Every structure is written in structure tokens, then in C-alpha cells.
Amino acid sequence: MSYIRTMLGDIAPDQLGFTYSHEHIVCRPGHWKDRNVDDLLLDEPIKSQSDVEIFKRAGGKAIVDATAIDYGRDVYAVQSISKNTGVHIIGTAGFNKSFLWDSLRPGSTETYYEWIERSSIKQLANFVVDEVELGMENTAVRAGQVKFGTGYNTISPLEEKTLRAVAMAQHITKAPIHSHTEVGTMALEQIVMLKEEGIDITHLSIGHMDRNPDTYYHLKIADEGAYLCFDGIGKVKYYSENVRINCILELVKRGYQKQILISGDTARKSYYKSYGGGLGLGYIIEQWVPRFIEEADEAGFDGKSLIDEFFIHNPRNNFTFKK
């Protein structure tokens, strides 16, 4: 039986609906909290919920919360937002990247770095399995994907360790697997390691592909069967929407429209409307989608059909547990 695991329980894949594939809803990353970087603390659940409500009113049905344990999850707060709004939210097991691992684990006197360093790959894998099958952080709220991350143009030994642990956990749980890439780098190297672990790359989505707007690179990743997550929508400080849309349409031209996911990675107060004036969770549906449809139609494609692929069909396929 196929299913998608949300923070409120398992649902049939066709119940998922219009989905953002990589967001952050409530999080207090220790690395940034210790440095008093307030913009990176999404620490007021009622404000986060207000933006989720905007998303729902615009037609959104589901959000993937990509916040792993080392990025300061608040499992119950996010589950409550799901209950209160009726929006499906998928939680994330696993890890982010070593850059963040200098903070203390909750309820522990050791840092994430120290914990990962002293643990075996099997021990870390068992931790991830438990987050999927039992619940995250001693709750009964189960994760719906597993995650690892790597750094900018490098994969540290401990990042490789978590990658292989997450791969082991994926074999056991059959959960979809997601990777963080720093500035869109090291995706092909990640794929090599995952294939060494026997992972079916069609179960993998790779984040932050629009931070590295290189069509040749994107095509090489798509050739491997992975989903490419363009999750920086609205962040013109990196690239204009024209650059992102052109990268997406280049993939579509080669027939890879079924491997594209779209989202905003809203991990700052300044990205949220309800925290004080950012574009917010409504932006993609309300403004980016109409623009994409217009540009896709002008390029000779059926823009509406592509939007259905990116936000409905592809998330449904990617986030389904494949037994």
C-alpha cells in the first residue's frame, strides 16, 4: 500500500494536493540562537500559522517542513499548525550540514558534532529510523522524509557519515530522501555516494538547485533520475525569477518536467509576511505561478499543465513511501 506520512498521520497520495516541497515553519536553530541572529529564528508559532493560513487561502494544500533536528525543530508547534489550518505538513528526519553542528543537542551536554562523531553509522541510522517509524524527538509525530546535507564545494567526513546513515535508514523505512546542497554544489558527488549505498536515485530530491543555475549541471542530475528542487523562489538577492524560470524550462525542453519540485525555503523572519513584511507563503501561488504560466505559454509550453506537474503530481510521486 502506498502512502504519504504527514505529521497528523498517513494519507493516500492523491490526498496531498498543491504542495510546497521545502519550507521551514517553526524553528530555533541553536547555531543562530547562540549568535543572536534573530532573523533566522522562526520562534513565534502564531505568526508562522498566519502565513500557513495565507497559503491555504491561496489554494495550498500541503507543505514539506524540511527542518531536521539540528536546525531547531519544534515538532508539536508545527503539528498544531497543521491541525489548526488543515494543511498537510510533512516532517523531516535526519540531519542538515556540519556548519550547524556546534550547538548543544536538546537535553544533552554534547554538541551535534560530538554526538555524530562518537556514534556509528548504524547508530545514527537507527536514530533516523526511529524518527520515521516511532516519532521525532520523543513524540509520536512521525517524519515523512529523511534528509542529509553537505557543505559548499565539499563533503566533510561527518557529512559523509550522516549521508551513509540516512541511506541505511532509507533502505529500512522506504521513506523519500532529501539532500541539502550548499549553494547548489556537490549534488553529483552525493549521488555517487548514495549509489554506493544502493539507493534508488529516483527516491531522491536535491535542494537548492536554483542557487547554482547551470543547465548542464541540472541535466546531469536529472539524467540520474533525481528530483531537482528549485526552492529559492522570491529570493532575487541571489538570482532573478527569469534565471530560475529559464533553468526550469530548459529541463522541460529535455523532457524532465516530472522531476521538478518548487518551493521558497522560507527560513527567515524577513521572508514571512506575518513576521513583519516579507513576501510570505502566499507569494509563489499568488504571483510566481501566474508569471510562470505566462512565460511557459510564450515559450510554447502548456504552463498550467506544468504547474500541476511541479506542485501536485511530482510531490505526490516523490513523497510517497515506496515499499
Results as ranks from 00 to 15, higher is better:
G198H: 05
T181Y: 10
L188S: 05
A167D: 06
S205K: 03
T181S: 13
S179F: 02
M209S: 13
A187T: 04
R211S: 12
Q190W: 09
I199W: 00
M168W: 01
M209Q: 12
D214V: 10
K195Y: 05
A167V: 03
Q190T: 07
H180V: 06
P213G: 09
D210A: 01
P176Y: 03
E196M: 11
P213E: 14
N212L: 15
I191V: 10
A169T: 07
G184D: 04
H180P: 08
I191N: 13
L188G: 02
A187I: 10
G184F: 07
I206N: 08
T215R: 14
M209T: 12
D200H: 00
Q170L: 00
I177N: 04
L188A: 12
V183W: 08
T215F: 14
P176C: 03
H180S: 04
S179G: 02
G184L: 14
I206Q: 01
T173N: 05
E189S: 12
D214G: 10
T202E: 08
M193F: 08
M193V: 07
T185Y: 06
G207P: 15
L194M: 05
H180M: 10
T181E: 10
G184P: 02
M168K: 01
A169N: 03
T173M: 04
S205P: 11
M168F: 08
I201V: 11
D200E: 09
H203P: 12
E197K: 03
L188Q: 14
H180Q: 00
T215Q: 13
L188T: 12
T181H: 13
S179K: 04
A187E: 04
T181G: 08
H171G: 02
E189F: 03
V183Q: 08
M209K: 09
L188R: 14
L188C: 03
K195E: 00
T215P: 07
Q190F: 07
L194E: 04
I191W: 05
H203Q: 08
Q190V: 07
T173R: 04
Q170G: 05
M186W: 02
L194D: 02
K174E: 00
V192Q: 15
T185R: 15
Q170P: 13
I177K: 09
G184W: 06
